[in-house]
Design a protein around this nucleic acid. Sequence first.
DNA 1: TCGTATGCTGTGGCCTGACCACATGGCCTG
DNA 2: CAGGCCATGTGGTCAGGCCACAGCATACGA
Lengths: 258, 258
Amino acid sequence: MTAIDTSASVDSRRAWEVVLQHIEADLLAGRLVPGDHLPAERALSSELGVGRSSVREALRVLEVLGLIRTQTGSGPQSGAIIIARPSGGMSSLMRLQVAAQGFDVRDVVKTRLVLEAAVVTELAEASAAALDSAPLDLGDAVRLLDAMDADGRVSEAEFLALDAAFHLALAELSGNAVIASMMAGLRNSIESYVLAGVPNLRSWAETSGRLRHEHRAIIAAIESGDAESARDIVNAHITGYYAETNFISTSEQRTSDG
Amino acid sequence: MTAIDTSASVDSRRAWEVVLQHIEADLLAGRLVPGDHLPAERALSSELGVGRSSVREALRVLEVLGLIRTQTGSGPQSGAIIIARPSGGMSSLMRLQVAAQGFDVRDVVKTRLVLEAAVVTELAEASAAALDSAPLDLGDAVRLLDAMDADGRVSEAEFLALDAAFHLALAELSGNAVIASMMAGLRNSIESYVLAGVPNLRSWAETSGRLRHEHRAIIAAIESGDAESARDIVNAHITGYYAETNFISTSEQRTSDG
DNA sequence: TCGTATGCTGTGGCCTGACCACATGGCCTG
DNA sequence: CAGGCCATGTGGTCAGGCCACAGCATACGA
């Protein structure tokens, strides 16, 4: 009796899809913008004529995709709030697709290579073009490199986490949120593989030293506006690591396999 | 009385996260592979000691992310089945993030440019390298071009849909599922903007003719193994369209805005 | 008067039980 | 042997309840 089924008596869409599309429409129309509160679950439920559990299913999806943040209790911070943080959703998506064999790990690495090259190219060109105006502050990235230089006091896992953060920082500095979140997701999805490869290294000290050196070289190439060499270094940087860990033979990917 | 709370009496994870992580663990361990059936919702519920609604929230997430397909009824096709189709999830994610202003449309276009260039580069290089062995069949893509040539009998929307399919086909031919699904998501997320830009064109006939010509040129460049010109053409192809629709002035993106 | 304590209220989180539509597969009947 | 019928198990959905939690207003005490 709650739902009025005049018009579209048979709604082919499932109830939770109705909720999802309703919210998407509100977003597209600008009726909902980041920072706004969604109506309470019970309100949304009666407003749309669906059960609260269906509303919750839709909200769960939005939460995983990084569109909303939920909080119990009362007050301004409670409820479901639009946040629009893509990285979390991208990470979940890629991690699960890799787990479910929808994504081949080699393709993840190759894609990361493509995006990473695009990022440093863009940064280098921006640096070259803006020598006079804005000086292109790479401080965030450099600080991470400094943290990685605390030799001996940084575990393998910590080092690799900082490494990931460094590459992510570069992506964010390029100003492209799409690429940045993709990079976050790609890296996140193969995190466990990266860690698992460490024992295969001949010498962690040697490898980490090389990685640190390459990082500095990337920064230097960007600052000097040398896009081409930045691209080459980052290429060798990533390819080299995976080759050393025997994680993937990047030289002969997908030559003739299905 | 159903849930036994020995060990980990306070589970900080929310109930639906427990379900999600359980399934993810099964995927990673290979206990679940594409084609397999998930346990029934009620079984999963009692097995994990959570309510069925929580199980459903997790399944909903998996469904939107493209990991499972659900079907009512009984028989071999009913229930939740692992499918691992990333495109749908990528599309949802990007579409909603664009709607929620988490992604700037200009960044979406720029990212598409990067990926598209990588795709045609890879295809061209593969074509050049495999002149003797496998002849690199572009048939799928070419058939789409043929369909677009039915001049006058293809509406704007249909033409643009075929255009999208063409670019997606190229991505899939490159063999990289990650890039292919990203391209699908990127294109999908700006679908409405692309369509909305059509009225801004000086002449649809002129533009569509140019697009068709450029498509053929891309194919030709790939087949001749000319990666560089393939990249240039695809770049001009995409940039040109958006410039013509005044949808975005690709020449001066993000020069000094926040 | 001021500060604190206390309870009210509204939020999401979760569970239970119930019903429905549906698809299958076996059983029963003609 | 063929065809129809129903038992069974599935996801889809709803209603209602309880809980923990956070804020806020109110009342009370210093």
